[in-house]
Structure formats: C-alpha cells, structure tokens
Design a binder for these strands. Structure first.
Lengths: 330, 330
DNA sequence: CTGTTAGCGCTTTCAC
DNA sequence: GTGAAAGCGCTAACAG
C-alpha cells in the first residue's frame, strides 16, 4: 500500500496525509488523529526510499571498522555497536555495518549521513581522508590515540591514563613499589612513554629495566614476564597493556612456581571477556563503552543535523578490581 | 551530480547512460566504455535511493540479533557479521545491523530484502512470525536447535553433536572412561539428552550421576564441578557445555589441589576468545563460522532473487585440541 | 543502437 | 485546513 491508496481510505488528499504523518502544524488536530489511527489500523508505513529520495537524507549512519587490529576487541565492538545503534535509533537513524578489513575506500558515502569510525592503531590522516570522502561526510573517530591531523572529523579519544593511574594507585596502596610494564610493541601507543610519569603521580618511581615491549599474544606476554621475573630484583607487580598479555604474564608467574596474587600481582587492560575467566580473574582497566557510544553518536548527529563543528572529547577509563592483585610480599 | 548532468557531459541521453551503467546489451561497446570511463573520471555514482525506489529492491539485508543470550558469543557475532558482510557484499548487498535485545517487532521490513536472524535459545515460531512479518520477508535463521515450527524461513542449524562426538572420541582415546557433563541449564538444549548416546557411540557408558545443569557463569561451572569431584567415584574428565563453564571447572579442579590436565581433563565448547587464554588453554569444540555465514547468505539470496524455497542446512562443529586434556590417570 | 517519456512513492510549494 | 501539481533521480518501456 502506498500513500495514494492509503489517502483514499480516508477520503483525503495525499498532501494532507503526508502533512499529518510528518506532524506538521497546518493540519487540524482532528484530521491528524484520524490519519494516525488509520495508519496504525492498516499498518501503513511510508516507503523510506521515496522519503529518502525526496529528502536527500538517509537517516542512516555507518559503523566503519577498517582494521582487523582495532583499538577494541571484537567483544567490545559488539558492545559499542549496541550503544551506537541504541543512541542512533533514538534519533531515528539506522546503523549500517562496514567491517571490511583493509579497505580504506569506504563504500558509497552517498548512502549514509555520517560515519562512526573505529580507529586501528595505525589509522592515518590520509586514511581518514579517503574513508570520509575528503571530510565531506560528517564523521566521528573513536581512537585510543591523540587525534590524527585531520580536523574535519570529530573525535572521541579514549584516555587510557585515568584508568592506568587508578591501577597504579591501587597497586601502590597494596604496598607495591617495583612495578613492571608489558607493552604491545605497537607504534602510536604513548602509554609506555607516559608510564614513568603516571608512576610518579602515585608516588612511585619507575625502573626502565622493568619494561618490555612484549607483543600481542599470550605467549609474548608469558616470555616477557619470564624475563622480568628472572631479574635480580624482579617486580612484585606487573602492569600489562592488554588482558591478553596479562594472561600470559599470569602463566609466567605460575610457571616459575609462584602464585598470583600471592607472590606477584598482575593488572590487565581492556576488560575483555577473558579477563573475568582466567585464573585468577584479572583486575583490569575498562572503558565506559556506553558513554563512548553516546558521545560519539551525539557529536555526529550534531554535525549532521545542525552542521555543528567537529568536537574532540576525551573519555577516561577506570579500574575493575578482581582477583589478580594482592598485598605486596614483604 | 545526477544522471542528467552526467549525461550532458557525454552528449548522451540519460536513457543510454543508464543502460550503459546497468550493463545492458543494447548499448554499443564503444558508448558503454565511454560512459564507464567518464563516470570513473568524474566520480559519478548513481543515487541509490532513486534506484531502490524504482527497483522496489533495497539490496540490503539485516542481521537480527533479538536476544542478549545468543547461541553465539559477542566475539562470534562479529566473526559471523564479518562473514555475512563479505558474502553479501560480493552479491552487492549491504548489511544493516539490528542488535536490539528483546524487541521482536523488527524495524521496517520494507527497508530490507531479507533477514539473517541469529536465534537465541528461546526463540519461538511466534517470535519468528513477528520478526519476519509473518514470513513475508525472506529470512534465514541461524540456530543451535532444531528448526522451530516456522517453515517460511531457511535454517542453518549448528550441529553440536559432531564436535562433541569428536571430543568424546578424543577423551576415550586418552583412556578416560568416566566423563562428567556440565550443562547450561537452558531449555531447548538437547545436548544433555543426546550425551549418553554420543558416549555410547565412542564406546563409553554414561553415568547420570556425573551430570549437572550448572548454569551460565564461571562460578556456576566451578560449583557444579566441585560437586562432581567430591563424588566417591569422580570423573577423570569433564565436558562443559560452554567455555565459560569449562573455565569454572578448571578453577574447581585447581581449588581441590589437583591439576588440569594431569588429574582431570576438561573440554569446553564454543571456542570463545577466552578459551585460548585460560590456564591451561582449553581444548574445545568450535563452529566453522565462515561456512555458516556463507551458507546462510547464499540461501537467503536464493530466496530473495529467485524466490527459491526455504532450505534447512546443518553445519557441524569440530574439536580444537589445546592443553586441557591429558591421559587419564591410572 | 539511442532518445523520449512515464512512472516509482513521497514531500512540498502553491492555490483555494 | 486542504487539494493539486511539481519534482527528487532513476529505470524501463516505447519509439525511432
């Protein structure tokens, strides 16, 4: 059924029906109600392609995940998508998905009003340029790094520092003074550089000998942790850049016949599903993804609907205390 | 730029241009090439809303995940979505996402040509009725159960039996004879009922005293496993319906001062991300998700494009051997 | 082979 | 307030 047939059942012109359905002022309240009720009764829904054609608006945004190695794990991606879909949905926007790894030529930008881009570590300004159609499509980038030099987009930056600081405070309170650091080895992660400063902020000093750029796999974490534990003055706690590395670090501790958290405490980062499941459950740093989604979508919709200028927002992380940290051994 | 302006730059009629762009036969090869090259040069892309309007086709399918408790974990969902997007994309279809938990009134069915529905355990025929618009929208359901009584949809059934049988064979080969079972307690899972038969198929007999409907969390798994281990004749191996339960079972074994897999072997199910990370890494049953995605989308597109009848396909699971199973203690 | 034209279903002037 | 009519950008049927 189209609007013509539908209008006939009401003995009204399509113009009036359209106005009623669009909640315009020039319709008598009585007519509007009549139209709305009939539409409900007959289950009439306007053809959205026709609406989009005439409106020049798609009421659709696309979630772009151009990399395989995201700042967010797959689990997080779903959580983020849930949030984005919900907030976008509240504003009448649908969500398209573009998981295409390594395809920086985004699809038809014509089809969507805006883009939510989940950045990988190595996302450059030039990538953004091509993904966003030279910045002509309103876009918001969710990134763990500082915004690349691409001012046409909005940014939601995940500030890893707040949660890490919290973690170090937690360890300091437990009496730890020698804290090791396991990094992912990925470029663009500035955490390693900031770590000494964060340590200082909670009253601890950082020993460069206790830092390793481990890698990405549990085994990378295990090997690097093994090195730290073999040191003459080994750390009593290890902070790992990812939960995956942290799980490897736990393996390493157990492997040397020691226990977590009895002998060595371990803190992870990301709060992946696995974090709650390893033995012991990992104390880890987590992102408030619902908030990230809300801020991202609202910034995007502001650009789309009111042509607002791009914004840069930062969202901090926080510590989730589970079972992998204990009082420092004396 | 629209097709009128574009046609002008070529001194052709919009009809000819449209035909060339649609790869119709009635265009001279020379003209076609000229049109294609110019389109490339000018970056002309036809307005897809107008195309959809006139075609009555959206070239869009929607991934529906109506439940929070899926048959697939979030990680799996992304993997499935990747597969679905890829296969759909090869056929020119875009992917909409609908993660809305507990909303069985699917959005505008008008907007999409078909639905890929990821079933939760409790998805009923009546749910499917409302999600698919009384079955008028081509749909394929990915389910771990037998197809509900809703013949309008295609089904991709995950046959958990093949992988579980493989797991039991693996355990039998390692000398295990007393194998415990930890279930999720969810209705609709027929595995518990089939378990004795699967045991028999690999030459083992099942002791009902070794079965527990544990629940969903690691702690549920831990407690249930603890019960089994406290039995006068405890199992030497435990099969858990989910990796989450399995991780709890591992905790239980360690808690009683025993080791995995030295004293007790544990097999999980689902191959979630966590499975590779727990200590020891879980031997578990996995789904061939890429195949599931391919079969689902191709069945769906057959219904959409050729009006093919719904199909029912079954895809088996397989065992991934890691470190949680060992030779049975003598 | 190419040009012309009538819709696809809707929103939005413009009259009344 | 409501109706009539002009497009939105495209495809397809019809001429030539």
């Amino acid at each position: 059924m189209n609007i013509v047939e539908f209008a006939k059942t009401l003995n009204l012109s399509i113009g009036t029906v359209s106005r009623a359905l669009n909640d315009r002022a020039e319709v008598s309240p009585k007519t509007r109600r009549r139209v709305l009720e009939k539409a409900e009764e007959l289950g009439f829904i306007r053809n959205s392609n026709a609406r989009r054609l005439v409106a020049g608006r798609n009421h659709m945004i696309r979630l772009e995940c151009p990399h395989r190695a995201h700042i967010l794990s797959d689990q997080y991606l779903v959580e983020l998508a849930r949030g984005v879909e919900e907030v976008a949905g509240e504003h009448g926007y649908d969500l398209l998905l573009h998981l295409g790894a390594h395809r920086f030529d985004s699809g038809d930008l014509q089809d969507v009003d805006g883009l939510v881009i989940v950045a990988g570590e190595e996302l450059t300004a030039s990538d953004l340029h091509s993904i966003t159609g030279a910045g002509h499509t309103p876009s918001v980038v969710i990134t763990g790094n500082a915004p690349p030099d691409f001012p046409a987009a909005s940014y939601v930056c995940l500030d890893t520092y707040t949660g890490v600081r919290e973690a170090l405070l937690h360890l300091a309170a437990l009496g730890h003074r020698r804290i090791g650091y396991l990094g992912s080895g990925l470029p663009g992660y500035r955490l390693r550089d900031a770590f000494p400063r964060l340590m200082a902020q909670v009253g601890l000093s950082f020993d460069p000998a206790l830092a390793r750029e481990a890698g990405l796999t549990p085994d990378d974490g295990r090997r690097a942790a093994l090195e730290l534990l073999a040191l003459p003055a080994p750390p009593t706690a290890i902070f790992a850049r990812t939960d995956v590395l942290a799980s490897g670090a736990v393996q390493a501790v157990l492997q040397t016949g020691k226990s977590v958290p009895g002998d060595v405490s371990v803190v992870g980062h990301d709060n992946i599903e696995a974090a709650a499941l390893v033995n012991p459950p990992l104390t880890t740093v987590a992102i408030a993804l619902a908030e990230v989604a809300t801020v991202a979508v609202e910034s995007l919709l502001a650009m789309i609907t009111t042509g607002a200028a791009p914004t840069v927002r930062t969202i901090g992380t926080h510590l989730i205390v589970r079972g992998s940290c204990g009082v420092a051994p004396v």
